[in-house]
Structures are given as C-alpha cells and as structure tokens.
C-alpha cells in the first residue's frame, strides 16, 4: 500500500450558465483587467488516498467522483494522481 495525492478538479458543465464566473469576470473588468474573457468557477479537491498502485488510486478516485464528488447532470471533472 502506498499513499497517493489525488487532485480532483470539478467544473460546471460548459453548456450551463455559470453566474459565479460571470460575477468574477465583471469584478475583474471593474478592476481594469479588461483583457479577461470568459471566467468559470469550479472546485478543487485534494484527497490523500491509500492504494496498491497509481492505477488503483485513479480508479478509486473516479468512483468517488461518479458517486459523490461531481454531479454528472451539472458538472464535469478531471483527475491528477501522484505519489504522496
């Protein structure tokens, strides 16, 4: 068993309106950062996972995302795994 650091990035589905991102974009424009185009706000989760291999850690993390960490109706996610 080894420890792995799993990073999960969860983003609102691209086709859905992201009002949080829009509000941040407007605030950036108000501060003079006029070069900012689209802004989207998501979540970043960092998990410490015990597994036999990197692949196993990845598979477990994927199962966690599918069941709990991301909502398949409204969000997309991607994963990064590295040895802790």
């Amino acid at each position: 068993m080894s420890r792995y650091r799993v990073e999960v990035r969860v983003m609102p589905r691209a086709t859905l309106l992201d009002p949080q991102g829009q509000a941040v974009q407007r605030a950036l424009h108000a501060l003079g950062f006029g070069d900012v185009g689209d802004v989207r706000v998501g979540k970043h989760l960092v998990l410490d996972v015990q597994a036999d291999s990197r692949d196993e850690a990845l598979a477990h993390a994927r199962a966690m995302c599918d069941r709990l960490l991301a909502n398949p109706v409204t969000e997309d996610y991607d994963l990064a795994v590295e040895a802790a």
């Binding site: 859905l16 009002p19 909502n71 109706v73 409204t74």
Partner: peptide, 17 residues
C-alpha cells in the same frame, strides 16, 4: 431527490446569484 437520482435533472446556483 435530484442528487439521489429519484428525480431527473439538478438544481444549481440562481442565475442572478
């Protein structure tokens, strides 16, 4: 109920925050 899959769809942040 939506999260549980007992109803279709989902509920997200109000459009005007």
């Amino acid at each position: 109920l939506c999260e549980a899959g007992l109803l279709p769809g989902g509920l997200v942040r109000n459009a005007r925050l």
